[in-house]
Nucleic acid binder design. Structure first.
Lengths: 344, 344
DNA sequence: TTGCGTGAATGAAAGCTTTCAATTCAAGCT
DNA sequence: AGCTTGAATTGAAAGCTTTCATTCACGCAA
């Protein structure tokens, strides 16, 4: 399509002037400005972001790396980030890693050569992220980590208060009278999974409850993992009276396993999740869950990023957002559960 | 970071040679090749995709435009497209339009100046897409439309057999004995919504059933729309015995409305959806739905795109994928429903 | 020995924009 | 009228890569 040279020719001005008009980088007098704009409009000219980026050493892209588009929690974050980014003239380039280390590296490496203004990462593997982030910063791009962090992460971050959320939820379970609590954590190398487990354990320890190590199972953060580990837990003797799922996808898997095994929820076993996806209230039974503000995590991350790009060089920000327990119908007291059973 | 000049200097060769090594664009003898690769590796050099794109008039990006990341159907398509694109060395740049016309235009306009190799669109508004697609093609980018098409779309497309899927599902409802069928269609300007309605009507007409125009409601393809229109339908006299939801998100909204109104599903009213999202089997009751292969739509679209980029100039392809009726528990015969009620 | 052909390597141009130093211009002042 | 000043405009370089026309070197045939 048309390029600046063409515009300059038609408007009868120099390339520099066209550029100044387009970017407001210098005052150009009205008649000239108008001539340039007329040419631009008549040709439907749009500056090449490629050339612009090459020259400016920076594009209006913001890279966003997420582990799995199909876990609805992440799209929620994406949507938040995109709203803020778009409103500020940035475009989100979404990269899906499928929880695949190699894919994450590949995306990080290549994305950088597109000179994005920034990077929002929900990491799935950590080994290289810290060094990669350094490269990005060196090339002038800001980096914000969301949801989970590399162990020694010292950059900006936006997370939920995972430990407290899990702690509160566990206390709720204890108040209901549960004593045999099982948990299916997400992958143990992920900090959010760690923190949730920590909150869970802390609540139990405060009540001096013994924790059966077999009741702590690790799974990938998806339905598949939840399904398999739930079947495992259901076969244990004694069987736990409640399962704390590391996230809602795991909880959904658990529900499937319940159905498969002919176990009723909550009559035979209680279940609680984490994330409070939109769909948690639609399941059978409606799933109690710890809600974390995915959309807001996205907007917050993008806002921090935009400020950094605009020159904020303050110390690293660590925003921790509140969680909230959503009580629905998937948890009942184990006593009530027993009595119901006996009634039959 | 390092650039080609640096590599050339270190390896003691010309820029052209470095380029040839990197791209295999000409044979270069082993010793030289090795010197170049050593320099590349020692510096961790990665070619600037910006400069490369500028020079080649094409980048390895594939733009993908979707209406709403938070409707799980779209991420499924995205995942399919991404898998194929990534495997072929292309990177998916995801743009979310939020069903917002202006945003769609903005993305289309700007994306083009990044010179992507191709564009996969699930359109939310059509007026400009046909002309925009022309621009893209002129700049050498292939365009594939997915899921819904502009009226006069003559380019490549991948869709589901919406009409047949809806026709089959409606026949199933009729076989169950339903006579008062309502439908909540998606936005009527979207071809997939139109086709589903068409299939629905055809099935009714074949059975010589009168269609009450009030029983045909239009809503946005989300929970919100489904919720509102369901409340409307529930208050009609006579009340329909089944609601055909234009997609699963609408069906989810309907379930919420049922709960809100104290109406039991399927005892008091039946419900069927379209899409068969992963979560359809988890709802209460498990939702019967017309399944369409989202992931496969993505892979197909990306495959077509890749072939086009590689030089396939054959006639436009119109792939129509099969749907399949998934029977679960949200539909029962209205007679059984009545008898149940009477038993109480 | 000369000339030719082939394969390998080089150098320069091109792609489109931004930016900065330099130039032009008009106006204001003495 | 001549000079200064500041603003408006221009021109050229730079950013990094690919590509293509050249050059170079070497072996072989005449």
């Amino acid at each position: 399509m048309a390029n600046m040279k063409e515009i300059a020719r038609i408007a009868g001005v120099s390339l520099g002037t066209v550029s100044h008009v387009l970017n407001g980088s210098a005052t150009v007098r009205e008649p000239l400005r108008k001539r340039v704009m007329d040419a631009v409009n008549s040709l439907g000219y749009q500056p090449s972001q490629l050339a612009r980026g090459l020259r400016r050493d920076k594009t209006n892209m913001i890279g966003m790396i997420i582990p799995d588009v199909t876990n609805p929690f992440f799209p929620a974050v994406v949507r938040g980030a995109e709203d803020v980014a778009f409103a500020n003239g940035y475009r989100l380039v979404l990269c899906n890693t499928d929880n695949d280390h190699a894919k994450e590296i590949a995306h990080l490496n290549e994305l950088r050569t597109y000179l994005p203004s920034g990077l929002i990462v929900i990491p799935s593997s950590f080994s290289d992220l810290t060094v990669q982030a350094e490269y990005y910063r060196k090339s002038g791009a800001a980096v914000v980590c969301v949801d989970r962090l590399p162990k020694d992460w010292d950059g900006d971050s936006v997370t939920a208060d995972n430990e407290h959320g899990a702690y509160e939820a566990t206390n709720y379970l204890l108040r209901q009278g549960h004593q045999q609590l099982a948990i299916i954590t997400g992958p143990r190398h992920l900090t959010n999974a760690q923190q949730r487990l920590k909150g869970f354990k802390r609540a139990l320890q405060e009540k001096k409850l013994h924790i059966n190590p077999e009741y702590i199972q690790e799974a990938s953060f998806d339905r598949h993992g939840g399904y398999a580990k739930t079947l495992l837990l259901l076969n244990m003797i004694p069987r736990p009276t409640v399962i704390f799922a590391g996230n809602d996808m795991i909880a959904f898997g658990a529900l499937l396993a319940f159905r498969q095994a002919g176990v009723r929820c909550p009559e035979d076993i209680s279940l609680i999740g984490f994330d409070d996806l939109d769909l948690a209230e639609m399941t059978s039974p409606p799933l109690s869950s710890v809600s974390q503000p995915g959309y807001q995590m996205g907007t917050t991350a993008a806002s921090i990023l935009v400020e950094r790009v605009r020159g904020d060089h303050g110390p690293a920000k660590h925003v921790v957002l509140k969680t909230a327990l959503k009580v629905r119908d998937s948890v009942i007291s184990p006593n009530r559960a027993t009595s119901k059973k006996q009634r039959k």
